[in-house]
Amino acid sequence: MAPANLSTRIPTAARFGARVEAFFRRSDAARGYLLLSPAILIMLAALAAPLLLLVLYSFWSQDGYLVNTQLTLDQYSTALGREAYRTLFYRSLSISGMVTIVTVLLSYPMAYFIAFQVQRNKFVWLILVTIPFWTSYLLRVFAWKIILGYNGVINSGLMSLGILKQPLEFLLYNPTSVVVTLAHAWAAFAILPIYVSLEKIDRSLLEAASDLGDGPIRRFFRITLPLSLPGVIGAAVLIFVPTTGDYVTPALVGGTDGVMIANVIQVQFTKIGNWPLGAALALASMAAVGIFALLIVQAMRLAISRVK
């Protein structure tokens, strides 16, 4: 019995090994996943696991220096219930909503210009609008603090020209200065998706519209704009979602009236040391942003289907 068993088992094992090898050699999927596995593993370890732990933390509570792992909804009732936090949620959403609108409106004509009017050296124009994107975010925000400050570029410039007697105080440390700074910092994110969707538009559609008697304006609103809306939606989401959680800009140019939700989250993780509440604030703001972004996307999709 035993020898027979052994003799059948060895070939099976060998055949199994050969089959695995053949599987890896032949199967695209297996080889593909083998190559993808380091990237997927690091994303699981550095993104998925931490986010899950963040969710778990938001259901715990802080007990002095220790974390009480008894599940509770206390953090959420504080995060959503306290007036001060609600104000911050509302302000963060409205500031980044404004930033999204301003940035998309400013960037659309530029993207249009590169897509339709630049014939040669498109590449140079695209590089020109992307360079600022790669340079230090911190320094670009800091530049606005220098420009808008009480003794800053605008005030001292206008005073030395004799236009102003007193420095203007309303330039810095308010929601508007946050909007201006963020619109400047995120411009490249808006231009590229819009440019890509404009570039994809079949030029013969535009000619057809003109041949059928549409003027340039009518043609723009009936053909170009609707067909570029996917890029506009992409740009809007790419700006709206991260700017709601921006920390540097409100901290540098926001003042007390321009504080946003990220600044409060940061305090929970540093000075105050209430990590569970910080986690709940972060997740609540992400949920709010997510819902809001979905609503925008749906509304725009509806607009597209209407026009079509």
Partner: peptide, 23 residues
């Protein structure tokens, strides 16, 4: 997979920072 690896673009940096800190 592509969507998963692009996810950091859509998560605010502060959330990436604090969740890694917790882990």
């Amino acid at each position: 997979v592509l969507g998963f690896t692009s996810l950091p673009l859509f998560v605010p940096d502060i959330v990436l920072g604090i969740s890694l800190l917790i882990l």
